[in-house]
Design a protein around this nucleic acid. Structure first.
Lengths: 194, 194
DNA sequence: TTTACAACAGACTCATTGGTCGGTTAGAAT
DNA sequence: ATTCTAACCGACCAATGAGTCTGTTGTAAA
């Protein structure tokens, strides 16, 4: 057979890239087809419709990518330090374009949560997984932290700031604001310590 | 004459409402025309094209609305207290739909900053105005606050968290997460005090 | 070698979009 | 009363979107 799985993966990869850059709605199938060098028939052989393609991108590309990014940052010996390191590294390592492009999770959340229930539930699930990941690992070292912290609340707060900062950077079109907010976020995180 | 300014305002108002709910791209002129009970000719008599209509909505509706919302919260005697009150009031007073709908500034920033330069610059300008408003008024009471604060940075941080929290609420479709993040934001703000 | 079907090709449909353009009407000015 | 123009009407257009459908081709099994 002509390697079906390979073309499927090619579609997923390029679709993920297009969606990250332009959002789901603005991503046109014809562009994906052109970049993949395949026909409409091929695409619709692998995916029932555009929405199902979007779901697949979210589940098979974004979700694992996301967890792989965050997990090491909070599962380390010292989550406080490595979370800060994680954020600061982002400021340093990521290109301006990448930052301005924003976090795919946040982007899709903004665009699709209110429009499509399938997306909303998948995004919500991802948010909760991420939140649990952070909250659980803060809880784990709670003896080192200030008393009376609501770890769930703190976790949501951290993610909110991160997403908000990447939103800010879009209008500024540079890393400066991103850096600023991340710096303040790190000082907030460090202040969680006793 | 048939009151031209009145129809212009009607268009602006309804367009603002549609854009807030659906975003700029997803807002179709035909819906605006239907809700306004006017013809396409009328709309294009007042606005050169969809983009110009969008700009007008941003400048004449969103911007003043936004400044009117934030200004009293930071220009008061005690900005720390009234900022917290401002946020907490939002959680209480705003309907679930309103919160889930999100902040128009943040929504447009996410959607349009990367796509259209005209929108991007207007949004950037608004962000900077808002940031200056907050930073200036924190500076004003700097003797009451902790030493070594970068007021600009703190201001961007606050706005980021706010925008991030309204993004979070979209996938959750309820106020709970919004409340959580706002609560943490308030405790952060109060900790700015000496 | 024939068969059978998954894997793909691409022309087509249909809805919807923003935008144009020639015509109509209200009403102020002369 | 006539004229003139801003204000408005609505049929029409080209472009583009997702999705359908008929037909072709590669390839593994019999």
């Amino acid at each position: 057979m002509r390697d079906a799985e390979q073309t499927r993966q090619k579609i997923l990869g390029i679709a993920a890239d297009e969606i990250r850059q332009s959002g789901f709605t603005a991503t046109s199938l014809s562009i994906i087809l052109a970049r993949c060098n395949i026909s409409k028939g091929a695409l619709y052989h692998h995916f029932a419709n555009k929405l199902e393609l979007g779901y697949a991108v979210f589940e098979e590309i974004y979700t694992p990518m996301f967890l792989a990014m965050w997990a090491p940052a909070v599962e380390s010996e010292d989550p406080i330090a490595s979370l800060c390191h994680f954020f600061e590294n982002m400021s340093k390592e990521m290109s301006c374009d990448e930052i301005v492009c924003g976090c795919p999770l946040n982007n899709l959340c903004q665009e699709m949560s209110g429009v499509d229930e399938g997306f909303r539930l998948r995004i919500l699930n991802m948010q909760q997984q991420l939140n649990h990941l952070i909250a659980f690992n803060l809880q784990r070292i709670s003896n080192e932290l200030r008393a009376g912290l609501d770890f769930n609340q703190v976790a949501y707060f951290i993610v909110s700031c991160f997403h908000g900062s990447s939103s800010l950077s879009k209008s500024a079109k540079n890393k400066e604001l991103f850096d600023k907010v991340i710096r303040e976020l790190c000082s907030y995180i460090q202040a969680l310590r006793k």
